[in-house]
Every structure is written in C-alpha cells, then in structure tokens.
Design a protein around this nucleic acid. Structure first.
Lengths: 97, 97
DNA sequence: TAGGTATTTAGACAAATATCTAATTAAATA
DNA sequence: TATTTAATTAGATATTTGTCTAAATACCTA
C-alpha cells in the first residue's frame, strides 16, 4: 500500500478540498479548477500527487479528464490512523490485513 | 481543531512511527529516541510538530519528559478522512459536530 | 486541416522541511 | 557545588514542495 504517498497527499489543504469535492461525485479537471484560485498547472500538480497516491483515478471523456475518488485507499488510510489507537470498527475482524 | 497541523504531522513516517510507539503506552523522549537512528535534536523537532498538532501531550518526570498520545485528536483526524467518503461509524450521530 | 478548448508538461523560483552540530537549560547526584 | 544525564533551542544547510508562466499535447468542430 505504501501509506506514505497518501498521507503526503492528504497533508495539503487544496488536495483535501479536491477530495471533498470528488466525494460528491466525479468531476472534470476543469470543473474542479473552477473551485480554486490557483493556476491550472498548479492544480495539475496536485492531481498528479493524488494519482500517485492512488486516491483518485482518471479517465478521458472527449476533451475532458474525469477524476474519480478511490474510496478504498481513503478507507485504508483512515484505518492506519484508527489503528494508532486501536479503534473498533466494522473492518476490525480483518486483523492487520 | 485546525486539521492542517495534524495532517502535516502525520505526513512524516518518523512521526507516524513515534505515534505508533506511543500507542503502546507513554514513553520518555529518550526511550523514543532509542528506536531511531536520527539525532536527538531532529527527534525533538518532530516532537514539537506533534505537540503543535496536539497529537501528543508532555509532562516532566524528573530529568525525563514523558510523551503521551492524545487519542482524541487522532480520532478527529480519522473522522475527517472517513467523512471524505461518508463512512458509517459509531460516532456518526454527532453529525458534523 | 485550421482554430479553439481542455489539460498536462517543462522549467524556474521562493518558501517550507528534515537533518545536522554546537550550545543551552534543567534536574539528579557525587 | 561541580559533574553527569536528559532534553531542547539555535543556527546552518540540502532537499522537497507549491506556485507561476510558457510551451506542448490531445481532442473537437467548422
């Protein structure tokens, strides 16, 4: 899994906001960009880090690139945090997977 | 709460390992340092970031400084990640708190 | 195929970060 | 009180990171 890239990705507020936007459903790069005041290349850089962490997946739709949240990696990441204090959840019986 | 400092703190593998060590119980700065090959001042820097994020609390015991995990902030942080995909857990009824 | 729109890549740069050694502070003890 | 031990602070430095503008790529449409 290599948590490292996911934690790095989550450490930036812009990237967390991108993920939050995507939690409402898939979006194109352009429509995500509309929510921010930074340049598109800067956003693209953030997209790259999110992809690298496998927190998002992409597919092309004509001229657009559609970004989709990869919830399983988010779940794994939350699990790592929860495990730091032995939190009980539904996924517990997996034992360390 | 300001999640930012907690996410930043969690983004570093050394700091996550410190937290993992503390999840087994409180430890002195020195005994934590024994688990790492980096210098004590470097560790102290990491301790500072963890304290800033309120992920750990400290108290002096003679010559030693004892570090203790603050699980409530870890819980809050995990919650932020879980909320990115509307995960259902026991704490759910709090609704956005 | 020419022109326009969407997005990424390249390259530069300032700010933030992790590390180190040296020095300092605080407490215990001979 | 002088010394030792535990830990932090100060200051320097190399690396990483987030941002920008300019250029390139990919696709669509007249």
């Amino acid at each position: 899994m290599s948590d490292q890239s996911a934690f790095k990705a989550l450490a930036d507020p812009t990237r967390r906001e991108i993920l939050r936007l995507l939690s409402g459903g898939s979006l194109t790069a352009g429509s995500i960009a509309d929510h921010f005041s930074i340049s598109k290349p800067s956003l693209s850089h953030h997209f790259n880090l999110l992809k690298q962490a496998d927190l998002v997946r992409t597919e092309r739709d004509g001229q657009n690139i559609v970004y989709t949240l990869n919830t399983s990696v988010l779940e794994d990441t939350a699990r790592v945090v929860l495990d730091l204090f032995d939190y009980e959840t539904a996924g517990k019986e997996q034992e360390k997977n």
